[in-house]
Every structure is written in C-alpha cells, then in structure tokens.
Design a binder for these strands. Structure first.
Lengths: 221, 221
DNA sequence: GTCTATAACCTGATAGAC
DNA sequence: GTCTATCAGGTTATAGAC
C-alpha cells in the first residue's frame, strides 16, 4: 500500500521544499534526503534541477489547466452572459480543489506564487508557456463578461488579479500570523470567495486615469 | 563630481542586482564586480551579505516610512473623516516618488516586491520589523476610514492590497510584455491611481463569506 | 535502479600584505 | 581603505561499480 516510486517521492519532496523555501534556496541534496533517495537518482529520472522543477509543475498544472478549460466550456455552453465572478472562479477553483485536499492546495498554491514571483528567466518562461492557452481563453472570457472595459484596463486589472491570487496563496501563513489568528485560513472555499469578491470589485471599479491628472507630487517623473 | 564612495557604489549595485535577480540568485562577487570594487570591500563596510541586504533596504525605507507617516499625519490633522483612497495613497506615494525618479521607483519597487515574497525567514523578519510602526498606524487609519468593516475582513483585504502593490511593482515589465505594449507603465502617477482604484473598490466590496456556503465542490476540504 | 566517489565550480567569509 | 590569496563548505552533475 505504501510503495510509492522513487520518482514520485522525489517529486513530492521537491514540491514541498520548493513551496517552503523557494527554488534557489532548495538543493537537490535536501530534496533527495527528504525523499529517502540518493542524490544521483534525481539525475537518473530527471536530467537536471531545471527539468525537475518543470516536472514538479507540470504534474499539477496540466490537470488544473484541463479542469479550468472544462469549467469555462461549461460556462460558455450555458449560452447566456458570464459574470466576472464566474470566470474568476473557473480560474482558481481547480487550484484550490487539488486532489490532496487542503494540504495540497496550500502547498501547490505556495508553489505557484513562488514561481510567479521568482526572478529567474527560465521560471517565468515556463510559467507563461504553461499558461499560454489558458490565458488566451480567460482573457477572451473576461472581455465577454465586461465588453465595455478597454483592453488596456483589462490587462492592468488582470495583472492585479494574478497578484492577489499568487501572493495570497504564498502568504496565507503570514496572514494568519499578522492578524493574530483572527483570519481563518483553513477553509479553501472561504479563501476562494474572499479573493473573488475583492478582485471582482476591482474589475468593476471605474477607470482611474482621470484622477491621475492631479498635481504631480512626484517631481521629475 | 562623479566621486561616489565605494560603500555607496556597492549599495547601488546591490540594489539593482537584487531587484533584477533576487537575493539568493545574486552573489557578492557579482555585486562588487558591478560596483567596480573588490570582494573584500563588502565585508569591510558591511559584515555579511545579510547585513548588506538590510543596509540596501534601510537606506530607502527609512525616509519612505518617515514620509508615509507625515502624509498620514497631514490627513489626520485635517480633522474630518478619511477615505480609503487617501490612506492608500499616503502608503504608496512615497515609494513611487523616490528621489531617483521613475528609474528609482522601478528599481526599489521591484526590490520591495522581491523582499515581500522571498521565502527566507530572515528577509520576512526584516521586512516586518521595518514596517511595524507604519503597519500599526495604517491599520488604524483604514479602520477609521471604514469603521463598519470587521477586523477579520480588514486583515484579509490588507493582505490583498499588499499583494497588489508588491507584485505590481515587481512585474511591471512583464505586464508591458504580455499586454503587447498596450499598457503604459512609464507614468508612476498613473500606476499609482490604477492600483489605488482597484484596491479601494476591493475594500468596499461586500462581505464574501455568504457565498461560501455553496456546494462544496472541493471534496475533502 | 540504486549506490559511491569524484569532478568542476561557485559561494560567503577572512587573514594579512600594502 | 583596498587588494590578493585562501579557506571551508556548499552546489550541480556525472562516471562507474553493483
């Protein structure tokens, strides 16, 4: 019952450690030690650290992206207009509902956030590649949900939305600590709805460029 | 005219490199090379890499935090109720209006974002310490601006707000690239107002917990 | 498939000459 | 103050035995 392959144990350990400490701060030795495997094994199954990172990601992201597109298909098949909330939910729900339950969503959520904010060129490239199709579909869906929104604003707000999703998941423990335990982070459903409500309101906010004509308090900019 | 001290050249180079590549991915050798200094100099002026990181931060953050509190004092001295927008502006404006103009705001903004999302214990500790006083004051100010907002919700929304600020600044170049140049990131005033409008709308969004009672699509959570 | 041993390299930090 | 030289330890990756 408990026989998980060495390859999977390495993937599991890598996922956990990358989520906890980031990519640059996690060595292959730490991973193989945690996995009860030998340092050479990671090079036998994967060729390099970079390839291992890719594998850790794809393992979760491929089914998540599949589920995202399914949910979007369902929404669109319904025929009638989409709400921003529905589109946003279709995007995040598959992350929160990972097969490992809450524990899994915490781990992979942190991992996604780390990857999104990692400075490495390779990581952002992988991240964007892996999300390319999903991105196109969801941008179109939001455009259909808010046809009056100019494209430039849509991109800005999408940028903000991704920031909320990514940083919220990586920083949940910090939120709990800073709030002195006031914030309950144990129910992924509540986390999802809080994020969606905040972001959807931001999407509906009126254009901000008018305000920017105020006195330029930043001399030189 | 051009004689900047070695210490300052190291700080400048470190700031730029940390912003570009993160902390773990930047070596002291790269920094001293970029600064035209010797590897031993960084250990002469600062004791360790950790101390250098602290110094890079304090140099900018101390005046920024001072200005933040000044702006908040001004708002509160005015006597009458604050709006969320005013409080948020008082928090971010000092970052955007760094003395080095747009270039400086881009660099330090990226740096702040990196620090906020860095996995290292030491960095998050420094970050929170450096922000402790400012945090208390601004939490109180937002509470005064939105007295009806429950404390738990306030913390959640603050978490989202910080995410938007931090990730937006680190990812401005990415936004420009993904949007195909549609998004203009050159005017810090516009960036500020877009962030403030989005976040303020999120703060005013109605509570989301009611929605969370829907069918638990996440089995097991 | 899994191991040991090792290559080749980079890291932060420091001692000591100038 | 600024340099060279070096230390002790970490890293990824690989060759070759079992």
């Amino acid at each position: 019952m408990e026989q998980i392959s060495t390859k999977d144990r390495i993937l599991d350990a890598a996922e956990q450690l990358f989520a906890d400490r980031g990519f640059a701060n996690t060595s292959l030795r730490q991973i193989t030690a945690a996995a009860g495997a030998n340092i050479a094994a990671v090079n036998y199954y994967f060729q390099s650290k970079e390839a291992l990172i890719r594998a850790v990601f794809s393992r979760r992201l491929v089914p998540i992206n599949k589920r995202r597109l399914e949910l979007l298909d369902q929404l669109e098949a319904r025929g009638k207009p989409l709400s921003v909330e529905e589109v946003l939910r279709a995007f995040i729900e598959p992350v929160l509902c990972s097969p490992q339950g809450l524990q899994g969503f915490m781990t992979f959520g942190r991992l996604v956030g780390r990857m999104y904010s990692d400075p490495s060129d390779m990581l952002s490239r992988v991240f964007l590649e892996e999300l390319a199709e999903v991105r196109v579909r969801f941008v179109a869906a939001i455009q259909r949900a808010m046809p009056e929104l100019p494209l430039e604003e849509l991109y800005w707000k999408l940028h903000f939305a991704i920031a909320v999703f990514a940083q919220t998941l990586t920083g949940l423990q910090r939120l709990k600590a800073i709030s002195g335990g006031v914030c309950d982070i144990s129910d992924s459903r509540v986390v999802l709805e809080r994020m969606v409500a905040f972001v959807a309101a931001g999407f509906r906010a009126p254009s901000a460029v008018g305000n920017a004509k105020g006195e330029p308090q930043c001399k030189g900019n």
